[in-house]
Simulated assay, not measured.
Amino acid sequence: MQVLEFAVEGEHVELNQLLKLVGVVDSGGAGKALVASGEVAVDGRTELRKTCKIRPGQVVTLGDLRIRVVAAG
């Protein structure tokens, strides 16, 4: 399993934007489509809300990719 760490500036990042920022998809729209497909999980639960707010401490999983979100700084 590949593990990435993403440092979020501020309180949160939207799920579709997170997928774009880490390079999983090329655009926010592609991120929305990926979330809508049911392939993305947040903290072990399937997440279908495309603009779900992801905060430090949460883990986003997509296939064999795990994205750990941490606070910047």
Rank of each mutant, 00 (worst) to 15 (best):
V59W: 01
V25R: 00
T51P: 02
A72D: 03
G23T: 12
V69K: 04
D26K: 15
R55A: 05
D43K: 12
V60Q: 08
T51D: 12
R66F: 01
V22H: 04
S27A: 09
Q2E: 11
K20C: 01
E5H: 14
A41R: 15
V69F: 08
L15I: 01
K20M: 09
T61P: 00
A41D: 10
L65S: 02
E47C: 15
T46H: 08
H12A: 14
A72V: 03
L21S: 08
L48Q: 10
C52H: 12
K53M: 13
L21F: 13
D64W: 01
K50V: 12
V25T: 04
G38C: 03
S37W: 07
G63Y: 00
L34I: 14
D26C: 09
Q17H: 13
A30E: 15
L19N: 13
T61R: 15
E39P: 00
P56I: 07
V3K: 14
S27H: 11
L4Q: 10
D26H: 12
K32P: 00
L15N: 05
K50Q: 15
L48V: 11
V13H: 02
G31C: 12
Q17I: 15
A36W: 10
H12P: 00
A41K: 14
A41P: 00
L65N: 06
K53S: 13
D26F: 04
V42M: 12
A30I: 11
